[in-house]
Amino acid sequence: MLKKERQEKILALLHKNDYLSIPEISTNLNVSDMTIRRDINELAEQSLLVKIYGGAQKLEKIEQELSTQEKIDTNVTEKQFIGKVMNSIISDNDTIYIGAGTTMLHALPEIKKANLFVITNSLLAFNYLIHNTDYRVLLTGGEFSRTTEEFYGEIAEKSFDNINIDRAFAATNGVFDNNVTTANPIEGSIQRVAFKHARKKYVVADSSKFNRSDVYTFYSLSDIDCLITDDKLTDTTRDYYNTFTKILKEEQA
């Protein structure tokens, strides 16, 4: 069997099974484990699957970015759980950045700290904060995206000049291997600027976002302090992503 044909069969098997061990693939294709390991390495380098210990997982490609209103009612319980984890690592009097996204919107009600100063480029987060908290709030300017209901671009990024952030929280459309992804460069750029001004950098992603890839990688997991998720992440997935950064999926004592 030619390598191209063999690798296509591996991807087809993963499409049906999500995860397969190396022995399962080698038995199915009647080739050696060593050959399958080599194939998995090559396919992972091409971002066609996710290589994990002892096997491979399917990589889901995000075909089109959904609007905020289309995503607002998805995985609400998981996003609220993430908010509880965020609350456990935020301190009173912190200056924090809250990025755009429905994860942040559902997480915010779980944040109970006092005297926060919150910087955000999210119109949804801003509206929640001014109507439900007494925190100091700074909404960036910039061009407005009707899809994600956030502000972005040069003017938005200049809002961070001379600001020292204690903790910055950015959401993502998907994480795979060491990649934190989003739909386009301009959405990722403002997250990078916020991270540049922060002492601690966190990415938040509910368990459905793992092993998924959007078009643009805006940050590396290995360059953040923690990846915050919910309590539904499988042990296999958790162990794999722990090789890139620390994963928080429970409230910290």
Rank of each mutant, 00 (worst) to 15 (best):
V193K: 07
S213Y: 10
D235F: 00
D225E: 11
F144G: 02
K249Y: 14
T120L: 12
N127S: 15
F126T: 13
T234S: 15
V204C: 05
H131L: 00
S222Q: 10
I155K: 05
F218G: 09
K84T: 14
T27A: 15
D33G: 11
N28Y: 04
R146W: 11
Y19K: 06
P185W: 08
R212S: 12
I36A: 09
R199G: 06
V215E: 14
N162M: 09
R192C: 07
I22R: 00
L233I: 08
H197V: 02
A156D: 05
I228F: 03
N179M: 00
E110C: 07
I119P: 07
E65R: 14
I247Y: 00
T120G: 10
L14I: 12
V85A: 08
R212T: 12
D161E: 01
L13E: 06
L2K: 07
N173V: 02
E24R: 10
I89F: 04
S26N: 02
K58I: 04
G142E: 09
T133V: 06
K249T: 14
T237D: 02
R38L: 02
I96W: 04
L13P: 09
K84P: 13
K158M: 10
L14T: 13
F117E: 15
L29M: 09
M104V: 10
D18W: 11
G54K: 07
I10E: 15
Q191P: 01
M34L: 07
M1F: 04
T236K: 08
R167M: 00
S208M: 02
Q57S: 07
T172S: 13
T74A: 01
N115H: 08
A205P: 08
L221H: 11
L13K: 10
K58N: 14
S32P: 08
G55H: 01
I186W: 03
Y19F: 12
A44R: 12
S91K: 00
A107F: 04
V180K: 01
A205G: 11
F218Y: 15
G188Y: 01
F81G: 05
N17C: 12
